[in-house]
Design a protein around this nucleic acid. Structure first.
Lengths: 188, 188
DNA sequence: ACATTTTCGCTACCGCAGTTTCGCAAGTAC
DNA sequence: GTACTTGCGAAACTGCGGTAGCGAAAATGT
């Protein structure tokens, strides 16, 4: 099944996604301008629209590619694992422009396809945290008797809350405090 | 000190803010169109810009007016108070279009003035929850020994996390579970 | 009365950004 | 080589925030 007409330039997709990634990082969803992306990729806007139906679809594809595997292997110290994970997530959020997170959340709420994409992106980390929380719970480290999913929300949710709503800083110390609140004080 | 020229139409401000509130409710920040607001208020766009310097400022004023006092008086049952508050916040969020919350968060991240305004809006509820958490802590109902501010984040943060990130529903039952996770299981 | 001052509404316009139209270039099939 | 198919870029279109300029209206002061 050989395609009939002029073949597509194979390099376009990669160049556009790379340019889009940089622009997204710089200015958030709204700050990502199709014009700039096309210019940086060295293609015309129309070429871009032939590959992706809209700006939203472009970002969907971009996020799908971002889904970097965060290889994580639990040790035998759930508290250590959990602190590491939550701290890493906090650092990741703190190191990303707030407008990007907020714009992405807004785009996710507006465009269902973006929502799917973004949720899939976070689902990976969510799964890792859930696993460790379950471990901790089996080891008897957790204070109450609550479903792991809820505890995960109480570990990660506050990070987003601070970032998007109250605007307070996300320090490593805050991450540790969150873990302590769920697991009880550290006995050392 | 009587002003010299033609006085301003006193009704304009109220009509514009009312129209803006409806439009904001319907379509979020981005869905609020200045043209539509002006039309619904029966005012020319220029008149609107004579009162507020930009769309952002208009929304700032709108949110400042929204800051409805939620009169809340703590009873002698902190668990009941807390459950009521968290459930009410969850219901409020669930009853508001997600795009509105997300757009507002994005606008807050982009425009500092909107950020101030939004944070002031949530600060009221935040204060109420903090007070009740402190009560519960004094009464010995709280499991660990963590600062009230952190516990508040762990009660409210998950609501925003579910709404904006994971997309899971905000049920009254979930709100109760959050409270139970912080206060320990209900003994009854 | 009349000049002055300020608001109002109207129309037209600018800039910007997402999206579409269209003519042409580049390739394949016969 | 000719017909057909597809990719491409330039320019135009569209919607929206924001501005400029104008004549008419509504107040104050003399």
């Amino acid at each position: 099944m050989v395609p009939r007409g002029r073949p597509r330039d194979a390099g376009v997709e990669g160049r556009v996604l790379a340019a889009a990634a940089e622009e997204l990082q710089r200015g958030g969803y709204d700050g990502l301008l199709i014009d700039r992306v096309a210019e940086r990729a060295g293609v015309a806007k129309t070429t871009l629209y032939r590959r992706w139906a809209s700006k939203a679809e472009l970002v969907v594809a971009l996020i799908a590619e971002m889904r970097s595997e965060v290889p994580f292997e639990p040790t035998d110290d759930p508290r250590r694992d959990l602190t590491g994970l939550v701290t890493a997530i906090a650092a990741g959020l703190a190191g990303t422009p707030t407008t990007l997170i907020a714009d992405l959340a807004a785009a996710a709420a507006r465009e269902p396809r973006v929502g799917e994409s973004v949720r899939a992106l976070w689902a990976d980390r969510h799964r890792a945290v859930t696993a460790v929380v379950a471990n901790a719970q089996e080891a008897g480290l957790v204070l109450g008797h609550v479903a792991p999913a809820v505890l995960v929300d109480q570990l990660v949710g506050p990070l987003y809350y601070r970032l998007l709503v109250t605007g307070e800083p996300l320090t490593p110390d805050y991450a540790r405090t969150l873990v302590s609140s769920v697991l009880g004080e550290e006995k050392s």
